[in-house]
Design a protein around this nucleic acid. Sequence first.
DNA 1: TGCAATTTTCATTTTTTTTTGAAAACTTTG
DNA 2: CAAAGTTTTCAAAAAAAAATGAAAATTGCA
Lengths: 168, 168
Amino acid sequence: MQIENKIQKTNEEEVKLEVESIDFFVRMMSILGLPRSVGEIYGVLYFAENPLSMDEISTRLKISMGSTSQGLKTLRSLKAIRTSYVQGDRKDHYIAETEFRRLFSNFIKEDILPHLDSAADRISSMEKHVIANPDMNQEFYTTRIEKLKRLTKAGRKLLPALAGLLKI
Amino acid sequence: MQIENKIQKTNEEEVKLEVESIDFFVRMMSILGLPRSVGEIYGVLYFAENPLSMDEISTRLKISMGSTSQGLKTLRSLKAIRTSYVQGDRKDHYIAETEFRRLFSNFIKEDILPHLDSAADRISSMEKHVIANPDMNQEFYTTRIEKLKRLTKAGRKLLPALAGLLKI
DNA sequence: TGCAATTTTCATTTTTTTTTGAAAACTTTG
DNA sequence: CAAAGTTTTCAAAAAAAAATGAAAATTGCA
């Protein structure tokens, strides 16, 4: 029973809690544009008292090993989970990282800041087109470009600060 | 030429700028999870010197009227554009709202905060399941639930503050 | 008010994203 | 070092999201 319980929650309230956790994180991750399976996996791990192996996760969620492997890869790259050694079992086991501050800071670093970098390049290219053509209403276009520059600058400053403020 | 220029940019540098603007906003909006057409429309309007009608937009972008109408609806609901009366033309005309602060604050209000509200409900339901079952490891589960509460609370405070800080 | 112009809606089609499942690659241990 | 266990990869299938286009609704003018 102790072991069986690891694979499939048997207690009714525990099952309900797990379902709600999955639902919660599926929605949360979908706000961040992450696929359903990623939210499901994190949802299971978040309320797991013990580290779970890939096939325990895939069994509980009834999703394929392929999906589970992909989802774990995504979560690992966001540092939202970490692996934990379990004695006497050669499978990898996973634990949810529950410090949301770190989680968000990784998401920003990994998924947002790269966009801001390429944005800066595109803005300076826009600038060249305006300068290259004196017939264009310079004031109008320069003002608009200036606003874009300020936007990306603000993003680069504020987003990391936001993660820092998240004392969770 | 003056009129023709409204429908189709003829100057080479202007065309290039418009293409880059579209590209820029398509990517930016996609970070926010908004469809391609929404980014395209905003991209055209952002560097338009005059208000544009729906069919001017749809012609320039070579997208259907249906898509254009949907996209304008989304942008209107985010207050990212506004309509402007053009004398002697019965079509509606649109102008980009370029105050990004307001734009983000609307996005947060409209697309993020509702999620946080329903999250709060789900968390209190989770709590009930833990309390209902004294056999569960109360300390473990209560700690995890507490973290979720703090997360949503922080979100509710920080997100609007973020928009406020964006002095653009 | 009635008609033409304009905009919206929505069923269908197209495109994009995600999942599956099986094969390939890697790992551990006997 | 081979065989079994485990994980990853990736082409194909399934599901989800977005765009189209035509019909319906709305609007403004004569």
